[in-house]
């Protein structure tokens, strides 16, 4: 790639960030990002389950299995051939995980807050 005489950073990007290098970096990022994203939602669900006798069938199907499905779809990003395909495979799970996270905060938040209030209330 012939680079115009420009900024050193931009020059460095044009000479270093070849298509292969970019794909490799992107896949490394997915390997680091996907477990963290799934971990956040999973731990939020676990926190919302504290003190509950049973998680409930609907809850397990829609949230835990939904999350597992998202994780699996994210992982298919590794076999993608182009950056656009990687993002395609990551964007949907990301959107669904974010929805599960927000939904859990809105629906289970008040109950978890009550539990925490019992524990933390004294420190106010």
């Amino acid at each position: 790639m012939s680079a115009p005489p420009l900024d050193p950073l931009f020059q460095w990007i044009w000479t270093t960030l070849s298509a292969d290098a970019f794909m490799a970096a992107l896949k490394c990022q997915i390997a680091l990002w996907a477990p963290a994203d799934v971990g956040i939602v999973f731990m939020t669900l676990r926190i919302a389950d504290v003190g509950r006798a049973q998680a409930g069938t609907r809850r397990i199907i829609f949230r835990y299995l939904g999350l597992l499905l998202c994780a699996l779809v994210s992982l298919t990003g590794f076999v993608a051939d182009s950056p656009e395909e990687v993002w395609t495979r990551v964007l949907i799970p990301w959107g669904i995980e974010l929805a599960i996270f927000s939904y859990t905060l809105v629906v289970d938040g008040p109950r978890t807050l009550k539990l925490m209030e019992r524990l933390v209330g004294k420190t106010r």
Partner: peptide, 27 residues
């Protein structure tokens, strides 16, 4: 931007795991 997301998300995971453990033990 992806690197930024990775860093803060791992921080969040560590904090949530620690928070969950504390909550579970106390509850």
């Amino acid at each position: 931007a992806g690197m930024g997301f990775i860093v803060i998300e791992w921080v969040a995971v560590v904090l949530l795991v620690r928070g969950y453990r504390m909550l579970k033990r106390r509850a």
